[in-house]
Amino acid sequence: MDKILLKKAFPQWVKKLQAYRLIAPTKDGNIWIYEAVTTPEDIDLEFLTTALSPKKIIFPQREVYFEFEKGDNDNPEIKETLPEDDPTIVFGVRPCDAKAVTLTDMVFGGDFEDVYYWKRRNQTYLVGLACNTPPNPNCFCLSVDGSPHSKDGLDILLTDLGDKYYVKSFTKNGDKLLNLAKNLFKQPSAANKKELQKIQTESEKKIIRQINNLKKVPPKLKDMWDSPFWDEEAMSCLRCGICTYMCPTCHCFDINDEVHSSAPLKGQRIRTWDTCQFPDFTMHSSGHNPRPDKASRLRQRIMHKFKYFVEKHKNYQCTGCGRCVTKCPVSIDIIEVLEKVRDYGS
């Protein structure tokens, strides 16, 4: 469904959307974050790349699996704590971040469906905003099968046409959100459609960072397991893990018990984000570590995203948001690493 929404009517639509929990980019000091908003003015659609992607709404950094306590007969009791019913609209999602959700869907789906993830996912609506100019100088979505106006994962995509938005709905859920305020939306004219085309083409040209021929990388990685390349590239890594914590597609987690009282025993089992860039991620109790150094951990990060995931799920596990490039304190640049892999030995 294609529609036009005048910017001056935008607050009225937002008011209707507030029938749901509404989460949108808001400015917090120098950064933008996705947060619950209470008025249309809280939403800042001029946002640059947010600190974290909306992944945190569907796969929060901390999830309580269940509560436990010692019951009457001294036996433990377990109480499952599923996320509450709380239909949520995430507004202003960048196409790369929306595509990332389709990738975490693949991980948390399949056999052994993750009920926590899907409880949240199935009640989340994703309303996107196309990137007329890249919100991060390190955006490289075009190189990883994405685009600044891609619809993957989105229910609705808005494109800024100056005084109005071009609104495209792709799903029944998207249509539902438009129907909340039917009379605000107009039919697009031929001129609107032409303008959309033009803006989309221009937006692609504004993306500076690209990796040509990324498809050469997965087969190349096959023969690079023992290469000294990984030592060289990982030399400066501080093992801070920011690259993975900021990543919209990384899904690794830890499971731990938090004890609130030991007598009587009371606590929670929780999952928290974790990262393959930490040494103890893979360390056995014996001290043996199959990935003992920075080189093997960088190799894992690159191999997972550009080889294993491609073989398993037919997608790169990277959507080109550029966060890891911008945030790495020692400027390890995944684009450069991939280019070097592509050209390795030739």
Binding site: V107, F108, G110, D111, F112, D114, H251, C252, F253, D254, I255, R271, D274, C276, F281, T282, M283, H284, P290, Q300, M303, H304, K307, Y308, E311, K312
Partner: peptide
Amino acid sequence: VENKMKCGIGKCGRCNIGL
């Protein structure tokens, strides 16, 4: 083969050997 494990169901990303 043993590797460190958490989820046991192929989600937590911890125990992989390659693919």
